[in-house]
Design a binder for these strands. Sequence first.
DNA 1: GATTTAATAT
DNA 2: AATATTAAAT
Length: 300
Amino acid sequence: MKEEEADDAILLQALDNGAFLVVKKKLTNDFVINARQHVIRERIHKFRKFRISSKSETKEVESESPSYKKINVTAERKKVRKCYGNGFPDVEFREKERVCVKRSAYTKRNVCDKKVICVEWTKELHFKFLSVVQELGEGNCYPKTILDAMGVPGLTRMQVASHLQKCRNGWTRKRGIPSSSNSDKISSDDSKGIFKFGRMPVVATHVENLEDSITSTHHATLSKSRGKMDVNFKNNQYFGESSLMNIFELENFEPISSLPSTQHGFIHHNFPPKQASDDLFDFMNGMEGDETFLAFNSIQ
DNA sequence: GATTTAATAT
DNA sequence: AATATTAAAT
């Protein structure tokens, strides 16, 4: 076997085992910078649509690609007004969280971009969810109950509710409720209407789906051209910044344009460039193993 | 008034 | 597709 083929075999094996990032040893600072740029680029991409040009009434989308469109802001405003009414706040503090969540794209200045913080329902988190749900049993699965039982620090009730909704609907958010549910509810016990709320999701199905989903999404594609890039990302969601963030155990971070404020207890939320590079470098070099390739997994 | 849920927005 | 957010229902 040629050396290159052997390398590919190892790479593929690592990817099959769930690695989302494969990096050649020995790490160079160039790589770190490169990786970081990927993160930055994605971050920019994520927020660029919120950037508003103050002069024209168009929302500017700055980019190297020509495929970005300009969006009529007034039309958008109408839409927003329709959704939220006239006096909607553009800043909202979530329950019990110190995280400031900004909503919608309409501030006078582009001073702050907004960040909607999403919880990633990792395998671990979902399993915890499932075990709690099973413990609670049919008829007792309320978002709040589940949330309390789970005991996960930053998690909110709404997030649990959202997840619960998806699980109940067969891992989707499609409209129609399973046809059987109505008849079950009414026929089996109508005295209290107990079955109406607190419904338990169908656990077995979801475990299956989850496994499938995870394994499939973690098959990164090997790039044919070697030497160019040592990182292979399949898609933004699983191989992008959130994965990198997981490595650092960073929960959330702010858009580039927003500023410092190092929260107590949290590692740089604003992710200063220099610091980030150094951290990544240290982290990866500190890893065990002396193989040609080093692979690690975002979901363990 | 708080929570749950379905529906919808992002 | 996955999650957040809203608005109606309880």
